[in-house]
Computed example of a mutant assay.
Amino acid sequence: MNSKVIIIGTTASGILGFRKDIIKSLTASGHKVYAFAINYTDEQKAQVVQLGAIPEEYTLNRTGMNPLADLLATLRLAKKINKIKPDLVFSYFSKPVIFGTLAARLAGVKKIFGMLEGLGYTFTNQPEGLSKKAKLLQSVQILLYKLSFRFLDKVIFLNPDDPKDLVIKNNIKVKKFAVLGGIGLDLKQYPYIKPSQKAVSFIFIGRLLKEKGINEFITAAKLVKVIYPDVIFTVLGGLDEGNPGGLQKNDIELLVSTGVIDYLGQVTNVAERIAQASVFVLPSYREGVPRSTQEAMAIGRPVITTDMPGCRETVVDGVNGFLVKPWDPQALAEKMIYFIENPDQIETMGLESYRMAQEKFDAEKVNKKLMGLLGL
């Protein structure tokens, strides 16, 4: 039987960037899909309509912790949901899962699901330990999860560490939880491209934040360049200068002017840039299952990443790349040097990455599994 399905996310760009494939799968199966986001432009609404879904705007304070504002936003969202009278509500990301779930419950929705694509920085270990602010925010989040999770038919995680660290460790009552294993990619957009036989190069993709491992990447690049000065280290990703762990513009300018890295900022041709590099590097402190790593694997690049939640789901150590300890630029540099000195392993391990991506990260397979978890 075809159902009315509401998907609740945060930004419109997030709906179009990360939920496009599941929306297409749902609409192709005959379900009526309403895509809720907080800041649609007319062009983005038109794109959602092209996918066969109905765009809906709602209000959510993405980062603030104002209980009254959140309560009012939840009541307004419940009213919007009640008008549609959906058979199922599916929220993703922390605040939509919390407040979307509560709103769906208030609206009397029978089937309510949530997906957490990672636990966020409040659950991300730091070399110096969690700050007092992060510990406080984590306590508030746990309280809100305890309040909302009881109304979920199922909580979906991307990796097996997240439910252990959130649900089991904090004794949060849930009816069911499941592990999806990654959000999947349209593999046609990331075809295998044989790596260049020329000089070995490394690429980092992510927001330029401490917890993404950008500092370790830069330090490792400096260590490698002492021995191999001509090796290229490319960085893609946006600055977040307001974030206490974010690199500043003048930091980047100095690194570029001294030849440590090539910085390309945010680009639209990510697949092309990955294809130009030899090895993908993400020394992150914690992830859901990183999309950028999945993209690099699909294109056929070996991966160096940390042995941390989410990251370790993408690498079989010594097969398609290497797992290193977090916060250890020396270990990272050693694995980079391994590829410089054993360039034949780039194609060999890259082909293993490609094989794993076909098996684990094909959007068609992932969406079939996700629809099964949602009972659709």
Rank of each mutant, 00 (worst) to 15 (best):
G118I: 06
L144D: 06
A103S: 07
K111N: 15
F157A: 13
G129F: 10
T122F: 10
A107E: 08
A103G: 03
G100M: 08
F90Q: 02
S94H: 14
N125P: 08
G118C: 10
F157W: 03
I98C: 02
V109F: 01
K146N: 04
D87Y: 08
G108V: 03
G129I: 00
P127D: 13
V155A: 12
M115W: 07
V109L: 00
N82A: 15
D87Q: 04
I142A: 06
N82W: 09
F123C: 06
T101M: 05
E117G: 03
F149P: 04
N125M: 11
K133R: 13
K133C: 02
I84D: 02
K95W: 07
Q141M: 12
K169F: 04
K79R: 15
K110G: 09
D153E: 15
I84F: 03
F157R: 02
D165T: 10
D165C: 00
F157H: 05
L143R: 15
F99H: 09
I112V: 08
L152I: 07
K80I: 04
S139N: 14
M115L: 13
R76E: 12
K132G: 12
L77S: 12
Q138T: 06
T122G: 02
K85T: 14
K154M: 07
S131Y: 08
A134L: 07
A78S: 14
G118N: 01
R76N: 15
K154F: 03
K133Q: 13
F157S: 07
E117P: 02
M115C: 13
P160N: 10
G100F: 05
F113N: 11
R76C: 05
K146P: 08
Y92P: 07
A104H: 10
F113R: 09
A134M: 11
I112Y: 08
L130I: 00
L130M: 15
K85C: 01
S94I: 11
L119K: 12
F99V: 01
V97N: 04
Q138A: 11
G118W: 11
G129Q: 03
Y145P: 07
T122S: 13
P86E: 00
K111W: 07
I112P: 04
V167K: 00
Q138Y: 00
N159I: 05
M115P: 10
F99R: 03
L136T: 13
S94L: 15
L77Y: 09
N82Y: 08
N125K: 15
L106R: 14
S91T: 08
P127V: 05
N159E: 06
L77P: 06
L119N: 03
D153K: 05
V140D: 11
L152C: 12
A78P: 09
V97R: 10
